[in-house]
Amino acid sequence: MLLSQLKLYKTWCKQTKLSYGKKISEKDLLISYQTGDKYSGSYILYALRRCIKRIGINKITPHGLRHTHATLLINQGVGVKYIAERLGNTPMMILDIYGHTFKDVKEKL
């Protein structure tokens, strides 16, 4: 279900960019409906802060979300190679950064 929603969103993004006469790149996923441009990093941080305030959770940065994402994948038993691909790192970098998490998961088993 989520994958089909992402495909629909990607199609919508491409159509929106074309409607503004902008070129399409396979890496383009996040765009602004009003302009067809990519969201800036500051806008994403602003939106994240608004969401955090609205739902009343502890503050977290986009980079913190990245670490949380990686840790959740590790705890679910996802392989190092797949995690590295998702985060745009090498498997060795993932092991260097999150090696302790892999050890903790193994100890729980």
Rank of each mutant, 00 (worst) to 15 (best):
M1T: 07
L2S: 09
L2P: 08
L3F: 14
L3R: 15
S4Q: 11
S4Y: 11
S4G: 11
S4R: 12
L6I: 13
L6Q: 08
K7Y: 14
L8N: 12
Y9T: 03
K10R: 15
K10Q: 14
K10N: 11
K10S: 13
T11L: 09
T11C: 08
T11W: 02
C13A: 09
T16F: 02
T16K: 08
K17T: 09
K17A: 09
G21V: 05
G21W: 11
K22Y: 07
K22V: 04
K22I: 07
K23C: 08
K23G: 09
K23E: 15
I24L: 11
S25A: 13
S25I: 01
S25D: 07
E26K: 14
K27R: 02
K27N: 01
D28S: 11
D28P: 00
Y33Q: 04
Y33E: 06
Y33D: 02
Y33P: 00
Q34P: 00
G36P: 01
D37Y: 04
D37A: 00
K38S: 01
Y39N: 03
G41F: 07
G41H: 08
S42R: 06
I44V: 10
L45C: 13
Y46W: 10
A47T: 15
L48C: 12
L48F: 14
R49G: 11
C51I: 12
I52H: 04
I52A: 06
K53D: 02
K53P: 00
R54P: 01
G56K: 01
G56R: 03
I57E: 02
I57S: 00
N58E: 09
N58K: 13
K59M: 10
I60C: 02
T61R: 09
H67R: 15
T68P: 00
H69N: 12
A70P: 01
A70S: 14
T71M: 05
T71W: 00
L73V: 10
L73I: 09
Q76I: 05
G77R: 07
G77F: 08
G79Y: 06
G79A: 15
G79E: 10
G79M: 04
K81D: 11
Y82M: 14
A84S: 06
A84I: 01
E85V: 07
E85F: 10
E85N: 15
R86W: 06
L87H: 01
L87Y: 01
G88T: 03
N89P: 05
M92T: 14
M92C: 07
M93N: 13
I94V: 15
L95S: 12
L95G: 11
L95D: 07
D96M: 02
D96T: 00
I97D: 09
I97F: 08
Y98C: 05
G99L: 03
G99Q: 03
H100S: 08
D104F: 11
V105M: 05
E107H: 13
E107N: 13
E107G: 08
K108Y: 08
K108H: 07
L109W: 04
L109C: 14
L109D: 08
L109T: 10
